[in-house]
């Protein structure tokens, strides 16, 4: 008479462990893997878009197109310093951030190394000028930062080095197709 081994086995054991493997891999794939793939970074300055919006500032005061079509996506240290030339000395969270900017960048002249959520790879030519007819956030391209008191966490892909929000090519192509715009290679890859 065969002695019972005490191990999970047979068809029941196969199905049981198949399910364990299936569920486990789904958890790893959907929960663990994303958290491992992306590192989280914070902006060098906790810039509050809402505070600036409440002051009556328009987006275009800092993010604007020049006459030749260049998009000035990030304000320079000099332009920030126009409004924040000196330390505030305030003990509030916002005051401390302003003082941090003044001391580390305004006084040294260094540019703030902002983390840009949507930078495209070098081989992609994206023109904001050609996309002026679209809303920045409603179109799904940018997060609605104007409603945020603190910038969203920047998630960087550990393998590619790109931001998690970097738009993929299929997204560009889909929108182009929907808008009836050419999807020829040279449209984006010069």
């Amino acid at each position: 008479m065969e002695k019972k081994s005490g191990k999970a086995g047979g068809v029941g054991g196969f199905i049981l462990l198949f399910l364990v493997g299936l569920v486990g891999s789904l958890i790893v794939g959907w929960v663990v893997f994303p958290s491992l793939l992306f590192s989280q970074k914070t902006q060098p300055i906790r810039f509050s878009h809402t505070v600036h919006a409440e002051q009556g500032m328009e987006c275009e005061q800092c993010h604007y197109l020049t006459e030749d079509g260049q998009f000035m996506g990030l304000p320079s240290t000099e332009s920030c310093a126009d409004c924040h030339p000196d330390e505030t000395g305030e003990d509030t969270p916002n005051g401390k951030e302003i003082d941090k900017f003044v001391n580390e960048y305004g006084k040294t002249g260094a540019q703030v190394p902002w983390l840009v959520y949507q930078y495209q790879p070098d081989n992609v030519f994206f023109s904001h000028s050609a996309h002026q007819g679209f809303q920045c956030t409603d179109s799904g391209c940018h997060p609605p930062v104007e409603t945020m008191d603190a910038p969203p966490v920047y998630e960087e892909n550990r393998i590619t080095g790109y931001s998690k929000q970097t738009m993929k090519m299929w997204q560009c192509e889909r929108c182009h197709a929907q808008m009836g715009t050419s999807n020829a290679c040279y449209v984006c890859h010069k």
Partner: peptide, 19 residues
């Protein structure tokens, strides 16, 4: 409790399928 060869294959197959 251990697992036999067939159950191990089941675990791997489940893992692969789920992945």
């Amino acid at each position: 409790m251990g697992i036999d060869r067939r159950a191990f294959i089941g675990l791997v197959a489940g893992g692969v399928a789920g992945t």
